[in-house]
Computed example of a mutant assay.
Amino acid sequence: MPRRFLQRYLPHPDALKRNRSLRVIEPLISDASLWMLSRRSVANAFMVGLFSALLPIPFQMLLAAFGAWLLRCNLPLSVGLVWITNPLTMPLIYYGNYRLGSWLLDTPAREAPERVSTRWVAEQAMDILPALTIGSLVSALIAGLLGNLIIRLIWRWHVSRNWRRRRRRRLRFRHR
């Protein structure tokens, strides 16, 4: 994974330290190990962020921040990945998690109504909750582990490609 590409899109720690609303968590933001961009820190950040994103709980960003602190991985990346489940994608993702959970529990899944509303969800909550919980945990674990593995493989591929390019350049330079 190109380090420069990630640095272009991630916020700088000094900019966040100057933000008055974030002064409460300045000790967390000041920890340099939470801002490193290494293969391990980025892969673990993807794992934490994807895991947190797929859980149907409030304060997913806090869970991702705590996970980043616990695993010493990249904080802004893990917190930013939580936004995979945003108000537009959340219904589709959580319905997929519910369908997975009902399949795993071998219970018939309820069909989504033409118009999903909070009232419908509140009425069906006790029937939906076990399947949604199991499906969300399983999909969060799978997505987190796959994200970690894929980032490590991409990073390794990128590094080996750069090494091959350097070797070819050196060989061309020697033969001139």
Rank of each mutant, 00 (worst) to 15 (best):
P2E: 12
P2Q: 06
P11W: 13
P13T: 10
K17N: 08
K17C: 04
R18P: 00
R18H: 09
N19Y: 05
R20L: 09
P27K: 11
D31I: 00
D31L: 03
R39T: 12
V42F: 07
A45H: 05
A45W: 07
A45S: 11
F46W: 15
L50F: 13
L50E: 08
A53T: 04
L55I: 11
P56A: 04
L62R: 01
A64H: 08
F66D: 01
G67W: 10
A68D: 01
W69L: 12
L70E: 07
R72C: 02
R72K: 14
R72V: 02
C73K: 14
C73T: 05
N74L: 10
L75R: 03
L77G: 04
L77P: 11
S78T: 12
L81P: 15
N86R: 15
L88N: 00
T89E: 09
P91C: 00
P91E: 00
P91R: 00
L92D: 01
Y98S: 06
R99S: 03
S102N: 10
W103S: 11
L104Q: 04
T107R: 14
P113E: 12
E114K: 09
V116M: 13
T118S: 11
T118E: 05
W120C: 09
V121M: 15
Q124V: 08
A131L: 15
L132M: 11
I134M: 05
S136F: 07
A140R: 08
L141A: 11
G144F: 09
G144W: 12
I150K: 00
W155S: 14
S160D: 13
N162L: 10
R164T: 00
R165A: 06
R165S: 03
R166D: 11
R169K: 07
R169E: 06
H175E: 13
